[in-house]
Amino acid sequence: MDLRYLLKRLVSFVVTILVSATLMFILTRLTPNDPIQALLGRMAATGSNIEGGAELVAMYRERFGLDQPILVQYLSYMSNLILRGDFGYSLAYFPAPVLPVIAGAIPWTLGLFLVSTIFAFVAGNLLGALATWPSTPRPLRYVIYALAPVSAIPYYILALLLLYLLAVIFPVFPIGGARTAGGDQSLGLANILDIVHHAVLPGLSIVLALLGFWVLSMRGAMALVKGESYLMYARARGLRDRRIFMRYAVRNASLPQVTALALDLGKVVSGQVLVEIIFSYPGVGYVLYNALRTADYFVIQGVVMFVIISVALATLILDLVYPLLDPRISYRDGQA
């Protein structure tokens, strides 16, 4: 792999993260309300005891470095963030730091996200391609097209529909959570099945919401590829239909789809936040929801940072993989 291309991509990845971390710093300083005051205010409202409130505020301010000049604050914020992955403390679970709160949720989110996004991408593109292929049986083509409009339904409606249908009316799947409460934490088969069982509905709502998009956009990509001379020439060479389909048509039509996937990741992540909330799935989205409810500023910051980093990372990976898929894009001039 060309070193300069790699370097360029890495630099733009790092810059994205530094810039968003800085923006986050500025935004939080711009908000008129002080998180600690707000916390104390809430404690007062709920009737908690706040003896020596003023001292407490001062102590917190010192602890969070809020009494320092803004530049010092910025530098320590950045160095804590970048060097130690330190997002500060959760206000709701004080003195628990933010990182473990988020870190515990990441595996759930990442697992659900990766499996459902990849499944939707592969299945959607394959179905979309099949729908346009002349030798596909007619009934299958109709089924595929009937499936496509499902993507017009927003994530949360779809999730609610599935929840109502398959967890309430026909209680085939649990209504929420990621595993049966009180179960053991071992990685036995029963436990894995339990986790999968819990992930089906949230996963399905993400997959169904994405599938139609991939089906329809793949249809467009295939229409372009079908006019290409290499397809005619493959036919002229008497290649087998399945080979022409997979290696000539789908292979080429999937190139713009990979680009679309990179552009779409942000949308998928935000959609997943809603799905996690609806299914009380203990992922990052659910953590965000709880943090919003309790005005847990530092956790909100951490989650937003996590989302930015993961989208940037996924884009970086796709950028690095893309030249392997399309030999015409050289690593050197592949600056998109």
């Binding site: 290409e228 001379s229 290499y230 005619m232 020439y233 493959a234 036919r235 002229a236 060479r237 008497g238 290649l239 087998r240 239909d241 290696r247 000539y248 292979r251 080429n252 190139l255 898929l325 399309d326 030999p327 015409r328």
Partner: peptide, 28 residues
């Protein structure tokens, strides 16, 4: 039929396209 045509293409009947732009699969 399609199967018979597929088999005779290239083993009995081959073709050199007019202009070779884009006749080879770009990713292979």
């Amino acid at each position: 039929g399609p199967a018979a045509l597929r088999q005779l293409r290239w083993t009995r009947l081959s073709y050199i396209p007019q202009g070779s732009m884009g006749v080879l699969n770009p990713v292979m």
